[in-house]
Structures are given as C-alpha cells and as structure tokens.
Design a protein around this nucleic acid. Structure first.
Lengths: 115, 115
DNA sequence: ATTTCTTATCGTATATTTGCGATGAACGAT
DNA sequence: ATCGTTCATCGCAAATATACGATAAGAAAT
C-alpha cells in the first residue's frame, strides 16, 4: 500500500485554515469591519451593533483574539479593542499567496476544461 | 433601549463567512491546492494524499462542493473532481474587497495607534 | 464601603463538525 | 450473473461551536 498517509498537513495549511476558522462566522466578519472603521472600540459598542447577547459577542472577540487578528486592552472598567494591523496584513498576504498559487496552477494545467 | 439588535447580517457577510467556513479545515485547504495542480482528479487520488479515511475525504469534498468551489462529475465508477474556476475567482474577489476595505478604513481612522 | 458600569467567565443546552467503519449503489470486466 | 473497483451515504461517537442567562471581577464614582 505504501500509503503516505502520515504526511500530516503543513504549517501554512494550518495557518490558513485557522485564519479561515476565525472568519467563519458573520458576527466575526462584521466585528473586524467595525473595528476597522472605529480604530478603537469598547465591547459594549460592538454589542450594540450586533444581534447577539453580550456574552456571545465576548466569545467571538475571544476567538478573534485567539488568532491575533485583534488586540484587547483593559482600560478601567471597559476593554478597548482594536485591530492588530500587522496580523491582518500577514493573514491577507498568506491568503493572497494561496489564491494566486491556485489560479496559476489552474491556468497551467487546465487546458481541457470542458466547463 | 432602542436596541437595533434586529439588524441581521448582510449577504456579503454571510458569503464571506460561508466561504471561510469551507476553508476552515487543513484538509480542504490542501484538497483545493491538489485540484489546482492536477486539473482533474479522482477521489481516490486525493485520499492517497491525505492522512484521512476515504469516507472523511468524501465529506470534505462535499463541503467544498456545497459552497461551489469545486465540481464533481460521476464518470463511470469514479467521480471526477475539479476546481470551479469561476467560483474560486469570485470568492477571492470578495475576500480582496473585504481586506482592502479594512486596510483602507484602518489607515483613515488609526492615527493614534499606540502599537 | 456601597453602588454602578463594563466585561469576562461559568454553566448549560443545542447544534454542528469531524472522523471512521460498514453498507450500498454504480459501473466495468469477466 | 458475478466480482472487483470506486465512491457516496448511513450510523455512530467524540469533539467543537454557538448562544445565552447568571454570576464574578475590576474600576470609577458616590
């Protein structure tokens, strides 16, 4: 059989899938957009803009923080969230590289696309 | 309270999160890459390249087909999978638009980035 | 010290995802 | 007609994700 099954996934593949997972919920897509518009934003403001309870929003923020796309610093009673510009940039670059590769490979090999 | 909670998410937000969900597993990231390289590919070949059972791979293919990123046509006993170039392109365009917007907004509003 | 405001976390319930063995369906070859 | 090949689907188990009310923790204000 010689099954090369043991070739696990690469670091790049994990990074991409993990980033995608963080963006796999409309609330988190929206949160990132909100934070981009407002620079800095309290959790409460975000809750106001989403059709979700505070506890749920907090969890979504946690997931975005887990992959580093946002940062949160406690400021007095509030918590100040903002986008992690560097991390977003890095994620986007990886995504671009991935799709560019796919498109390039496609053009190279797909001569007999019967559509 | 006047909670505008009822503003659900937009179609764009759903499209993006749904696309991200399809890419939120390393196996599916890899499958798409494999299909890009090979143009057209039998399910069995993909199974050989992944550390997963045939049933599991079939499910991942189904998820990619669900969002339209790949197409599968039954050819005799085999099933011939290939990338849906148009859908991948559309998905990429939406992703690009999303990230470009975020980056632009960031630059516009983030003057007091304390890093 | 008590109250208020803001947010994280704890339970808990439900739903979805992931993974695989077993089965079944479709086809080609014998 | 039977066999082997290929793949989808079923059934099941375990793990994650989603959502929310209730509670706790922290700081500011009184």
């Amino acid at each position: 059989m010689a099954k090369a099954k043991t070739d696990e996934f690469t670091g790049d593949e994990f990074f991409l899938s993990d980033t995608a997972k963080a963006l796999s919920h409309p609330a988190r897509i929206k949160i990132l957009k909100i934070l981009a518009e407002m620079d800095v934003c309290m959790c409460g403001e975000i809750v106001e803009l989403l059709p979700l309870a505070q506890a749920t929003v907090s969890q979504h923020l946690k997931e975005l923080k887990r992959v580093g796309l946002i940062k949160g610093e406690i400021e007095g009673p509030k918590t100040c969230y903002c986008i992690n510009t560097g991390a977003v940039k890095k994620a986007y670059e990886q995504i671009q590289k991935y799709f560019e590769t796919i498109n390039k490979e496609c053009i190279r090999s797909c001569k007999t696309q019967t559509k």
